[in-house]
Write a protein that binds this DNA or RNA. Structure first.
Lengths: 199, 199
DNA sequence: TGTACATCAGTGAACGCGCGTTCACTGATGTAC
DNA sequence: TGTACATCAGTGAACGCGCGTTCACTGATGTAC
């Protein structure tokens, strides 16, 4: 039966948000539209009233995950700056935290879906590329602010982001919890210096 | 019709090798057994004479990819050492080469399948973990040999490997070739120093 | 404000399709004598 | 070495199932007067 416009828009947002989480947890092929719509509190038949196809939802869900991730990064940066703490250290520690590793559904979309995205034609890589530029830009600013006059290589932020994504990905793909922790800690130490107190 | 034992063993190896490439290219869910067996020159019906299930083949294909990758790393290290070149630089340059990025099917199994493996129960992560230890061990040796007395942090090789895997993953998930190259170059510069000539 | 009707978000059954898996069958291979 | 027969790798049709997608239908919503 019909619902009012506000409810319909909220339902649509719920589907996109649910999809952005379930895709990260299970991969694009790991969750069907029927189960996905059910998880959003709807039935599967109405899907095509809101989306052109599953690929259409995939694109929207990735946009959503990319955007909310960027917002989260900016919030972390702002809070650290206001507290007078190192912004880079705050970003790195939050990203390489076991909690982030365990919460795949709400975590970094690159560690969860970049390999799937690379297999999905040029449209997703375009979106992911824009996302990388945003994240690397935030990192770059944090690195230059922390370096206090020392020179920071042009694309050092890209290398740092690669380290973060790679460490998160690898730490999820091992069985031993202690070893997973070592991977995260090694990456953090490499990015922040041995003591982990780099500005 | 029946084939002789040697042929049967070769067919089995062909299926595993074909699977290890196609899984890397398309993901575990991206290729069906029928197409996969066809790519190996067989029909799908015989699959269960050689494998217990698709998951069984997935495990074998990952083992195969992990092993051949490790062999390739060791060969690169040995050749560089014999030529008197920096082993770390040789490993990093080869890994972060656009050619490696483009050849997903024969390339690094972590960049291609680690996210899928993390979703696949504890068996695959056990294998991937052993693989990481092998690769990180080779990197560790190369870093200590190149450091010539300087101290190398305990798990610096784990951080370096994270950087490599992350950079390869991200460079595959962007649309612009020039930007993809920048990611690879930034990671190499970060690992080898600005000039890229670290021992 | 109240009535009449068109709209359309959501429902649930149905579609064809490819999936992983099973099975009866084939015929060259391997073995026993 | 030659013959008789059991073995079994590989074939191709068939299985049930869940997938993405379509569709006739429902009934509250939105609109026109």
């Amino acid at each position: 039966m019909r619902v009012n416009r506000a409810q319909a828009e909220e339902n649509r947002r719920t589907v996109v948000e649910t999809a952005s989480q379930l895709f990260r947890e299970r991969g694009f092929d790991g969750i069907g539209l029927s189960e996905l719509m059910g998880a959003a509190g709807l039935t599967h038949g109405g899907f095509y009233k809101q989306f052109k196809s599953k690929d259409d939802l995939i694109a929207e869900a990735c946009d959503r995950a990319l955007t909310s991730g960027a917002i989260s990064w900016r919030r972390t940066a702002t809070e650290a700056a206001e507290a007078g703490e190192g912004v880079l250290a705050a970003l790195v520690r939050r990203y390489l935290d076991p909690t982030h590793r365990d919460r795949v559904g709400t975590g970094c979309v690159f560690a969860a879906l970049a390999a799937d995205a690379a297999r999905h034609g040029p449209e997703l890589p375009r979106r992911f590329e824009a996302g990388i530029k945003t994240y690397a830009g935030i990192l770059d600013e944090a690195m230059r602010a922390g370096a206090a006059g020392a020179d920071v290589a042009d694309d050092a932020a890209l290398a740092a982001f690669s380290t973060m994504v790679g460490a998160l990905l690898l730490s999820r793909a091992v069985d031993d919890e202690a070893y997973a922790r070592r991977i995260l800690d090694a990456a953090a130490a490499s990015l922040l210096g041995r003591g982990g107190d780099a500005a």
